[in-house]
């Protein structure tokens, strides 16, 4: 039991530190998954099997999947810049963290933690049955209010993520007209896929050696202009 605790404690603290120090947001999400799974095991060994399963299903399954979904939507390469925008902020944050831990440690050190009563009595008829009994009797009002909260959250997400169409949708006829009357009636040039960069975000080269902007999808070039410039600079050198 003690060995299990120390293993999980070291793993979860290391993963939490990795989460706040890794520059890539996807690594942070995976580290958070490690922390949550360790906590689920800690719940399971503390006579809370229901919460352990809810932790795995709701947090690791649903919430982290939502995080990863939004990360992919926003762009996985949106890594943090390491520049401090406020001078001395990291130092101040570290000092504040140490002070906070000290404060909590002193508080708990002064509190009289009694002996562990254990949950054998409360869990006598099964943990799930005991938790359900409490939820549907003493905490039934909070449980009902939760339903209002969930409905509000779902509505809020729909309102926030909804976008009004500002222009009427173009029909196929209008699209064809736009294209054939526009400056570029032929198909657009394909991206330049070279031996060194096997990727669609590299522009093709015109006969004079300049990059052909039309050959890269505007979605891609808008998403990562800095990276393309970096690669092109590297090529020139």
């Amino acid at each position: 039991m003690s060995v299990l605790f120390w293993l999980l404690a070291v793993a979860s603290v290391a993963a939490a530190l990795g989460m706040i120090f890794s520059r890539r947001a996807v690594y942070s999400a995976l580290m958070l998954a490690v922390v949550m799974l360790s906590l689920a095991v800690l719940y399971a060994v503390q006579d809370a099997p229901f919460l352990a399963f809810v932790q795995v299903i709701v947090y690791t399954g649903a919430v982290l999947m939502l995080f990863l979904f939004v990360l992919m939507l926003v762009g996985v390469d949106s890594s943090d810049s390491l520049v401090e925008t406020l001078r001395g902020q990291r130092f101040a944050a570290t000092v504040a963290a140490l002070g906070f831990v000290l404060l909590l440690a002193v508080g708990v050190g002064n509190a009289a933690l009694g002996d562990v009563a254990g949950l054998a009595g409360a869990n006598a008829g099964g943990n799930l049955q005991a938790v359900a009994g409490l939820i549907f009797t003493r905490y039934v009002f909070a449980f009902e209010v939760t339903s209002a909260l969930l409905i509000t959250a779902a509505l809020a997400a729909m309102v926030l993520a909804h976008r009004e169409r500002r222009h009427p949708k173009l029909s196929q006829k209008e699209l064809a007209k736009q294209r054939f009357l526009g400056p570029h009636p032929t198909p657009l040039p394909p991206p330049g896929v070279y031996a060194r960069h096997n990727a669609v975000d590299m522009p093709a080269r015109l006969p004079d050696g300049s990059p052909a902007e039309l050959s890269v999808s505007p979605v891609i070039s808008r998403r990562e202009p800095e990276r393309r410039e970096e690669i092109e600079e590297g090529e020139k050198q």
Binding site: A16, I20, A25, L71, A93
Partner: peptide, 17 residues
Amino acid sequence: LFTIGAVGVLVRRNAIV
């Protein structure tokens, strides 16, 4: 763990992190 989370909120700039 709580303190590490608080430090993360203070020092990170990416809203998702």
